[in-house]
Write a protein that binds this DNA or RNA. Structure first.
Lengths: 131, 131
DNA sequence: ATAGATGCAAAGAGTTTGCATAGGT
DNA sequence: ACCTATGCAAACTCTTTGCATCTAT
């Protein structure tokens, strides 16, 4: 898949630019809305197709947030997790991890990876209602 | 919602029984298949409606596994997390938690809850391949 | 000029809802 | 008898695909 020749269309360029400017995971819908500021008639199918292409190229990674839609972020970042605001639904990146996390597995189970998500209210959403 | 009078239909009883017999989270589709052994013509809409009712009653809780469908398990269990086998896709419950987990949040962020999922190979799937 | 990319609309999965009827209480 | 619950099908959301057209190379 990643050995196919790809063209630099206005749409694909705009989508890449969106991810480079906002440094947080985005859903397909959010990508569409942000990309529409750049390319007027861009459609949701184009967004999905480019998300898939960029995943295949290894430029994006999928962020699997529990329960919600799939989200996407630039690849190549250090191991990290996410915080989702239950008020504005925005997703933030967290630094670091908990080293003992894989110790929770039962004996005989092989842990290959883990996902960790914190939920709550982000600093921005807390402020309006006073600290 | 939970102050409404509910009736004990064959369907609802079967669904409850399914959760009581298998001690692991189930998707709506899995509930349907298991409940069909008990009640013949049960439909998917009934399953979804009852899952919602049982959630409202506090008898079930939603298990939000990343990327996949929502799953459901009996409520009232101690705080715990899950392990998903990447080979058989079965979900296991884990005991305990990591106490420092909410320290990962940025300053000013209010953490209300967290989800943690380990992925790998379960003991059953490892055994056939020796060890 | 050629072949990949786009936009639109239709098609699929998963979930929800409207409506007439069945069935607990 | 009353009124909730059910089954069916249609509606809805999110994602994918078919097809004619456009466009980067």
């Amino acid at each position: 898949m990643s050995d196919t020749l790809h063209r630099n269309t206005r749409q694909r360029t705009a989508i890449r630019k969106v991810f480079e400017s906002v440094n947080r995971p985005l859903s397909a819908q959010q990508v569409l809305e942000l990309a529409q500021a750049e390319v007027d008639g861009i459609g949701i199918a184009t967004v999905y197709r480019n998300l898939k292409t960029l995943l295949d190229e290894g430029w994006l990674t999928q962020v699997e947030l529990p329960g919600g839609n799939l989200m996407y972020e630039c690849a190549g970042k250090a191991h990290h997790h996410h915080f989702q605001c239950e008020s504005c639904n925005r997703v933030y990146e967290l630094e670091g991890c908990v080293p003992t996390i894989e110790k929770l597995a039962r004996p005989g189970f092989k842990v290959r990876r883990h996902e960790l998500v914190l939920y709550g209210t982000c600093a921005t959403c807390r402020r309006p209602v006073q600290n």
